[in-house]
């Protein structure tokens, strides 16, 4: 069952929808400092698209699309990037936001006070940490889903 996936209806709808889910997840990560959501939530959305692919197509459908070693490597890179961004402001304090309001091109713009639509190029290390945590969460949960599917499949065949 897990080898062949689900019915034609589910597979067709999944083929239409999974790209949009991944796009929405990246939107949530990218606008984490402006709209509700952030790295954790957007990463979970992207990982849900991978889980949908796994459920609809089975383990054969993902062969060649997602490499488990690559997923683990990206997860560790995300964790290290998060830690490095935290250490960036160690001159003042751990997790000090060095880049905010610096006026630089890297998320250094200021935000007017009060209700406004927000500035995308602002927030200092916060958007960068959103990306690091988002990459970490999406690859971590995808790796967990793939590993558990492979593990359960092996028990079936043996």
């Amino acid at each position: 069952m897990s080898n062949h996936g689900m019915s034609v209806i589910v597979r067709t709808v999944t083929r239409f929808v999974y790209g949009l889910i991944i796009l929405f997840g990246f939107y949530v990560i990218m606008h984490g400092h402006l709209t509700p959501g952030g790295g954790f939530q957007g990463g979970a959305v992207v990982a849900s698209a991978f889980a949908l692919l796994l459920v609809a197509f089975g383990s054969a459908g993902l062969k060649g699309r997602l490499n488990l070693h690559w997923l683990q490597s990206i997860e560790e890179v995300g964790a290290l990037a998060f830690l490095a961004l935290a250490f960036l402001g160690i001159g003042t304090a751990f997790f000090y936001n060095l880049l905010a309001n610096s006026g630089g091109f890297l998320f250094g713009a200021s935000v007017p006070a009060g209700a406004n639509a927000g500035v995308l190029n602002a927030g200092g290390t916060v958007p960068l940490m959103n990306w690091a945590v988002g990459l970490k969460v999406m690859t971590g949960i995808a790796a967990v889903a793939i590993t558990m599917l492979i593990g359960s499949k092996k028990e079936e065949t043996e």
Partner: peptide
């Protein structure tokens, strides 16, 4: 908004004021 330059205050708390908790 003034200190972190972030409109989403929850994200400001999670990634800046309480960053150690997020770690």
């Amino acid at each position: 908004q003034g200190e972190v330059a972030v409109n989403n205050v929850v994200t400001a708390v999670v990634f800046d004021y309480r960053g150690f908790d997020t770690l």
